[in-house]
Design a protein around this nucleic acid. Sequence first.
RNA 1: GGUGCUGUGGCCGAGAGGCUGAAGGCGGCGGUUUGCUAAACCGUUAUACGGUUGAAAAGCCGUAUCGAGGGUUCGAAUCCCUCCGGCACCGCCA
Length: 464
Amino acid sequence: MHDIRGIRDNSDAFAQGLARRGLDGAAIARDLLERDKALRELLTRLQTQQARRNEASKLIGQAKQKKDEDQAKSLMDEVAGLKDAIQRGEGEQRELEAAVRDALAVIPNIPAADVPDGADERANVSVPSRAFGTPPAVANPKQHFELGEALGQMDFERAAKVSGARFVYLKGDLARLERALGAFMLDIHTGQFGYTEMSPPVLVRDAAMFGTGQLPKFKEDLFASYTTEEYRRAFDEAMLEFDTVGGPPNETLQERIGHFLKRHWLIPTAEVSLTNYVNDEILAEAELPMRLTAFTPCFRAEAGAAGKDTRGMIRMHQFSKVELVSITTPDKSNDEHERMTDAAQEILKKLDLAHRVVTLCTGDMGFSARKTYDIEVWLPGQNAYREISSCSNCGPFQALRMNTRWRAGDGKVKGPVHTLNGSGLAVGRTLVAILENYQQPDGSVAIPNALQPYMGNKTKIAKA
RNA sequence: GGUGCUGUGGCCGAGAGGCUGAAGGCGGCGGUUUGCUAAACCGUUAUACGGUUGAAAAGCCGUAUCGAGGGUUCGAAUCCCUCCGGCACCGCCA
């Protein structure tokens, strides 16, 4: 969320920043400032009227005490005249404020100065100093789902029968491998990087989704949960409204039901639960940086991904991920971003998986990010580097949405904190990477040394 | 889900139509005292918007803000309604 004052003071930088994202920044800024100006003009007018009302009200009290009913009566008449104007003004004020707020809520973060310009992923810029390893020579590489299915430990068919497309059953050693990876990653992040392990809720309220930026703009990417009873009530209320007043203009019944529906959202990433952990709080400088990590399932509707990665475990409705979240003071967030990326890479290094890091260009970055590093792991079966982690510095963007501030040692509230999040790593995709990189000619899969203690000291996964 | 209670500043908490931006306490900041620290004492301590003085720092005046929105009233933290949180008990339940 942007701060209207910041935009007012620095509208050119704001407009240019949005332009770098491919938006018409100048028009957006102009529109916002126009409304903001109208709002403040309105306030000036309204405040004079309110001042007179307050003054007259006091005089009425005094007149009544002095039993001067004539005086009281004439003042009351005057206030009655003001009342209407004030009420209208207050209505206008609310409308304008809501309009500004709604407009701000859907404007993405401004890219950092060192983020490369570009429209899509082709403009992302590799970070050579972060590259690691070389793709292993794998003869006749198979894709992970071929390996997993041949092992009899990855079952998409039964998952489809039970849950539909984009779900999977893992079984036996592969199921254990997922658990092992989660534990392995958590141990490194907590032991080596000082993150605190959390077990957070995976169902959250609207406010949390707003805080990290999934709402209001990206509803269609989310799964929602509600009881049938909750849905029935919402339906009834919406129907009643449509029956009596015909429903609000420009809204379908279905959309209107949404307004009455009390629901939880399933987190698309633990970033939501971990970052909102501190929403609406003022944090002491001494508790920063706050570093949190969690191993959770994540749920994504993948609404816009029809036809993409339809085979295998690359893109699922449900997957598990270890998430890293840092809350810092503004001066530390850039360093923290590098450190977080180090932590994510450390997992791949310990698993000896070749990977590279790219800085996302302005057009490829997510809504809340000011700068993002993607880590891409080599997948021999796909003969390509694929994203396995995304580490973002959101600056004060989420903190402003969540109302999370920090207080310096001198007791003064300094303003919004900075928030960062990164996958450390996507566990499902790490499992894919292990299958494809450690596949053996006989169809078995070697277990990386670092992981063997988590797998009962087994050295390979073979058909049961 | 039902019933009851509840939501006030950085925090705790009083306030039950006008004298309340809000008692008191804690915490913070400044100071006095003091070998040091602590204690004690004194002072101070919300935000936003508008206006105004000022080179600025800052000051002064006004307005709004006591979960959110609406209503009653000349006037609402206080009364009424709706919604959103929280707590307790009951029901159901891993």
